[in-house]
Amino acid sequence: MTWTGVADVVAAACILLGALLALIAAIGVVRMPDLLSRMHAATKPQVLGTVLVMAGVGLRLRDLSVVGVLVLIVLLQMATSIVASHMVGRASFRAGQVRHDLLVIDELSSEPAQDEPRGAP
């Protein structure tokens, strides 16, 4: 097999694995009991999934001009998923939408009242 054939097989494996991770993320959103657990399922396996799909696309196209866009997609996906999951998690915690029965330890709620106003940086 030539190297292009090998690259095609690797690319197919990467894309399939990435798609599988995205599927697991979707199943997780349906199955998880509360919002914060859903955030884990929805945002995280899918980051690795995106990286794998992009690697697969890059290996299949084998075109230098596409690599820049692919790297950009991965970096922006990482940057935005961090901020999005943090903001949604924080908002739900502050709104009291937390299933305390699912928490083994909660070191944030047991913290003494803070002087900082809520929303302080």
Binding site: G28, R31, S37, P45, L48, L102, I105, L108
Partner: peptide, 23 residues
């Protein structure tokens, strides 16, 4: 990679998850 596999296995197992908020 390791944690992705772990979270995926948690999702696929039908079991009550227990979480924690850690400082």
């Amino acid at each position: 990679v390791r944690a992705s596999v772990e979270v995926s296995s948690v999702v696929l197992r039908r079991r009550q998850v227990s979480n924690a908020v850690v400082a």
